[in-house]
Design a protein around this nucleic acid. Structure first.
Lengths: 177, 177
DNA sequence: CGCAACATGTAAGCGGTTACATGATTAC
DNA sequence: GTAATCATGTAACCGCTTACATGTTGCG
């Protein structure tokens, strides 16, 4: 389950360019599986090389023009195989939490700033997900709603916890271990 | 905020060997910032090289014996500098959620198995945190309780969401996009 | 006697991040 | 005109993961 596989999966929802896939990531998946152009474009090239996707003739010549890809039958089989056999990980990696573990060595004002910033960015993410989640245009499949909802639930829990327990980081400042 | 900095920070809690640090990670930090021996030992070597920590004479000769480290004054300054200046990230990376995004291509039985496994492992993590959280031996500083509590809150929210919404992954199976 | 836990390290490989490079089109 | 967005790609770097290699101590 690397970026390559996820790109392959996204193409089961319809034809798309690398840029389109990035937009799709930003709309929903980025909250649980972030990816940049530097991963997407090589992934598409490798998938095309393997015959798992095909490029519907680049519109216009040169390296600047839009290249739309479609998944092939072989690609769908490969995707199903990968989805069926991988042992999917699930990890939080938070430099912020690691830093706060040592908040007794950080100026209180900076601790407060870091928390404020994170809460603000989480709340922005929440609003962003709420927008993506009800586009009216077409109903998302249950799987997509599940993942969006999961991200929302986790972010919400994080925000609530930070607001309710940040006082823990302001006490014990005088007691050196 | 890489493994090196976190190791440096953990040494502010007292002298420790690489193995001790790994145990400390496993007890609490692993839930928000996982690390293996392959990161810890090189990190300690580099920190010692830079004069940020010092090795209290290895007990016994050869490469097998326990090597206990202590943070130096220079190390504490460096740590404070790093904690004060870094822009700490905070990211979830879940191959599981990415996979479930395409659950319309996964056998229902496997979806159920994956969810059951993840829920079980999360509940195990919760029990593990509860044990580490009240050791009776000595009261943890507020910062550590904050991080432990955050991890617990997030895992709990994840478990609850998965239990309450897994039905979303079982519908829409017949409707192909 | 064997197994688990203790204890330290190296090296290859993989994959994500970031910076760089380029250029077209659209809106103000 | 000029800034933002659209659009594709490469290459270096960095750090984590994994496998390997080795040896001791304590328990049943």
């Amino acid at each position: 389950m690397d970026t390559q596989t996820v790109c392959l999966g996204l193409l089961t929802f319809g034809e798309a360019s690398g840029y389109d896939l990035k937009k799709h990531f930003e709309a929903t998946l980025d909250h649980v599986f972030a990816t940049g152009f530097g991963s997407i474009y090589p992934a598409l090239a490798a998938l095309a090389e393997g015959g798992f996707i095909e490029c519907l003739g680049a519109e216009g010549e040169g390296p600047t023009q839009r290249k739309v890809y479609r998944i092939t039958a072989r690609g769908e089989e490969e995707l199903k195989r990968r989805l069926a056999t991988s042992q999917p990980s699930h990890k939080l990696r938070s430099e912020l939490l690691a830093l706060l573990y040592f908040s007794h060595l950080v100026p209180p004002q900076r601790v407060a700033e870091l928390l404020d910033e994170r809460i603000a960015s989480m709340e922005a993410g929440l609003r962003h997900l709420a927008r993506s989640g009800c586009p009216g245009e077409h109903r998302w499949p249950g799987s997509v709603r599940f993942v969006n909802g999961f991200a929302s639930a986790l972010i919400e829990a994080g925000v609530r916890y930070m607001k309710d327990h940040r006082h823990l980081l302001e006490q014990d400042r005088t007691t050196q271990p």
